[in-house]
């Protein structure tokens, strides 16, 4: 083989080696890209860092941790998930989806916005609870028998299934819960007053969410939410 043909062969082999190297490099680069796009579990990787979002999340976590510390139940209005929840020590113990009636998504957004207020308040205690009407869970005649057998006052044994009740926070924010229970009004005067108050304050910007709930879920929510109960809002 002549010197010129030898050098031509070596050039070709050099180019082919280079081409293989380039291909390998491209392959590795594409693998690296894939790895950075998804995590090991196949879920999308974290978004690029955003200080403002991180601060919001941090405040929310810190708020929840402070509530969890008390080891008492607290109410959570989880707007992104559209659930009303009860949590104890950071653990979900009760939940119900926000089934809206007479109100819509924009009311949820406005409620969330007003709850946060200018200071971004994530937690507020329930200020008032108003029961419009209810019905005894167990018939009185049955309770009388149980009461005699167990030596416990029938009134203690009774659970009131709410037909409708309201939870109120500062600024007139109202959660109005309705069920299909045909109950007796607790006080017609108080009910009318509450309705008038709502009719006056709502056009002035006081937000109301109206939810429909099955009777047993409403019973839990009604009994578990006393004035003073802290409420955490996960903003919409």
């Amino acid at each position: 083989m002549s010197t010129s043909s030898k050098s031509a062969v070596s050039l070709v082999s050099l180019f082919s080696q280079l081409a293989i190297l380039v291909l390998l490099a491209m392959l590795l680069a594409s693998c690296g890209k894939k790895e950075s796009a998804t995590t090991a579990s196949g879920t999308p990787a974290a978004k690029p860092w955003n200080q403002s979002d991180a601060e919001s999340e941090y405040r929310l976590i810190k708020a929840e941790l402070s509530l969890a510390e008390a080891k008492k139940p607290y109410l959570v209005l989880n707007f992104p998930r559209k659930f009303v929840e009860l949590r104890l020590n950071g653990v979900l113990v009760w939940e119900f989806p926000m089934e809206l009636i007479e109100t819509d998504q924009s009311d949820l957004n406005d409620f969330s916005h007003d709850f946060l207020g200018p200071k971004g308040t994530l937690m507020r205690p329930i200020l008032e609870k108003h029961l419009f009407a209810s019905q005894g869970l167990t018939p009185d005649s049955v309770l009388a028998i149980i009461s005699e057998a167990t030596n416990v006052n029938a009134e203690l044994l009774q659970r009131e299934l709410p037909s409708r009740f309201q939870l109120l926070w500062a600024g007139g924010l109202t959660l109005d819960v309705r069920t299909d229970v045909e109950g007796k009004p607790k006080s017609k005067f108080q009910n009318t007053l509450a309705d008038i108050k709502q009719a006056i304050t709502r056009p002035l910007g006081r937000e109301v969410i109206i939810l429909k709930m099955p009777r047993e879920s409403a019973l839990t929510l009604y009994r578990a939410t006393l004035p003073g109960l802290p409420t955490l809002v996960i903003p919409a």
């Binding site: 405040r59 810190k62 708020a63 402070s66 509530l67 008390a70 008492k72 200071k119 308040t121 994530l122 937690m123 507020r124 205690p125 200020l127 500062a170 600024g171 007139g172 003073g228 109960l229 802290p230």
Partner: peptide, 15 residues
């Protein structure tokens, strides 16, 4: 508006 009450036993918005 009613004055904001801080729930007993909770640190509300002092975070």
């Amino acid at each position: 508006e009613k004055p904001e009450v801080i729930a007993e036993g909770y640190t509300v918005d002092t975070l």
